[in-house]
């Protein structure tokens, strides 16, 4: 209260106070952005370091670590394993998740409450619990730990992501659309492909992309379910445990680059989708 009185009584110092406030906001926000991006800058910068050790100042600039990556067969295998896992897991989650969201939105059935709780659980649960519970299941039924086991694990863990996003979109969709389609004589499948799906398309694509990136980066579930084949994060993890090298930084920089492109693409995609509607 005294602050207001002062502000009203003395207009000149108030201007200074406003400027001081703006300056402190700027400093604070810059500090937070620094906290967010300096580590990423460090990661990228050291990928060009000539020496093996990651000490500042850098010993010199080189592209050797990137050249090494190109001839690292294990790494390339791991990358393609990850692409295989993420693509399969994403397809599976969409095939299971979209009907699940539709069921939650449109159909009443016994046990719906439990079904909803169960299917949404992995979004809140630590990945390790999904990982070990599936490890136990696969061991019990004699299913070998493999990339396929990882795919099933990822699909299960990521189901919640797809279901929440598609369900949220369905809730905003008037049921009259599907009713009108049925009145006009369309079958259930026709209505789904011609009416419902186009309306939830961005939610399906968006959640699919999110599921893909999450699967590509996943460790806790993969850790327990993978057999002899490594995914990319598991390969990086095992390399890290052997020691720090600029090679990891080079992989990291490529991932940062790839992520930046993906983010850019998804922003562009969303922008294109929203424009025609306006």
């Amino acid at each position: 209260m005294t602050q207001i009185a002062q502000e009203r009584a003395t207009p000149l110092p108030r201007k200074a106070a406003v400027q001081a406030e703006r300056l402190s906001w700027m400093l604070g926000i810059t500090a937070i952005l620094g906290f967010l991006y300096l580590p990423i800058a460090v990661l990228v910068t050291f990928s060009f370091n000539t020496s093996r050790s990651l000490t500042w100042p850098m010993s010199g600039l080189t592209l050797d670590w990137y050249k090494k990556l190109a001839s690292n067969d294990q790494l390339i295998d791991a990358f393609f394993n990850s692409v295989y896992v993420a693509t399969s897991a994403t397809s599976l989650t969409l095939i299971i998740g979209v009907p699940a969201a539709i069921a939650l939105d449109r159909i009443d059935f016994p046990g719906k409450g439990l079904f909803r709780k169960l299917i949404l659980l992995p979004i809140a649960l630590p990945g390790i619990i999904t990982g070990i519970s599936m490890l136990i299941l696969f061991r019990a039924i004699g299913f070998n730990l493999s990339l396929e086991a990882v795919i099933v694990g990822h699909a299960t863990a990521l189901l919640a992501v797809v279901v929440t996003q598609v369900y949220a979109r369905l809730q905003r969709l008037p049921p009259s659309l599907a009713e009108a389609s049925a009145d006009l004589g369309a079958s259930g499948l026709q209505t789904f492909f011609w009416v419902t799906l186009p309306n939830i398309r961005t939610a399906v694509i968006g959640s699919g992309m999110l599921a893909f990136t999450l699967s590509f980066d996943e460790i806790p579930v993969t850790f327990f379910l993978t057999g002899r084949d490594n995914t990319l994060p598991m390969y990086i993890w095992s390399t890290m445990r052997r020691g720090l090298t600029p090679e990891i930084n080079a992989i990291g920089s490529l991932i940062v680059l790839m992520s930046a492109i993906l983010i850019f693409l998804s922003v562009m995609l969303l922008r294109d989708k929203t424009k025609p509607k306006k």
Binding site: P39, V42, L54, D217, P233
Partner: peptide, 19 residues
């Protein structure tokens, strides 16, 4: 979107004895 693992790892470079 950037790997969790790499974001954690970079702190190892920053905080380490030779960091």
């Amino acid at each position: 979107w950037v790997s969790y693992l790499l974001r954690a790892y970079t702190w190892k470079i920053i905080l380490g004895t030779t960091g």
